[in-house]
Design a protein around this nucleic acid. Structure first.
Lengths: 107, 107
DNA sequence: TTTTTATTAAACCGAATGGTTGACTAACGA
DNA sequence: TCGTTAGTCAACCATTCGGTTTAATAAAAA
């Protein structure tokens, strides 16, 4: 259950699952409600939610016969954190270049 | 070849590929050199680099018989950008809560 | 020219993925 | 109590994935 980058990135690599995340950002809701807009079976959506839940991105709470899902963005923080190590490589080409040059100097 | 979030997150969902990215952040290098530390065939590593390249995260340039690979972090920017939409959900629980309340008000 | 080196291509394999359907369970409403 | 609703489970299917091995290509080195 300890979420890792593999699971986080895998969970977010599917457009349906990203849409579910986007939906949950608007507020907690039920599985059926999540499933509504999708042209696929409830079972399929349920599996997607399971993937998100296994990745620690969604918390599912059962109340009665209904499952309420809420966004748990914690693991995204780690993902961003990993990505930001490479920030210089997209933000500032000169910075990246100088980084390379520095490295080259002491190699 | 237009990289999308699906490809970006998929590419980054594998630990080997993330290690390749980390390696390339230290500077451009060859496929063989990338493959060295991994306990798998060159073919396997070549495939991983191909996935990264298809995702637009790595640029491969052939010089002679050697392929030089360099990091192209551009697509990561879009990934971070997508993730940052959910920043409030991990950074500040009160902010997230107030966000929900606001939404609830005009629904 | 011959051999080595760097790499891709092709075929294959087992496991995982994203989807389906049908049967089941459990809770709510009439 | 009975039917409906919310959701899971299990089995199945086609495709993708991560790896292998063997063969092919093309450039550099001897």
């Amino acid at each position: 259950m300890t979420p890792n980058l593999d699971q986080t990135f895998t969970a977010l690599s599917d457009a349906t699952r990203r849409a579910i995340v986007a939906r949950l950002a608007q507020g907690e809701t039920t599985l059926s409600d999540i499933a509504c807009p999708f042209d696929m079976s409830l079972t399929a959506v349920s599996k997607h939610v399971r993937v998100l839940s296994d990745a620690g991105l969604v918390n599912v709470v059962k109340r009665g016969r209904t499952r309420y899902c809420q966004l748990q963005a914690g693991p995204m923080k780690d993902a961003v954190s990993w990505l930001n190590h490479y920030q210089e490589f997209w933000e500032d080409r000169f910075a990246a270049l100088s980084h390379h040059l520095e490295k080259d100097e002491h190699e």
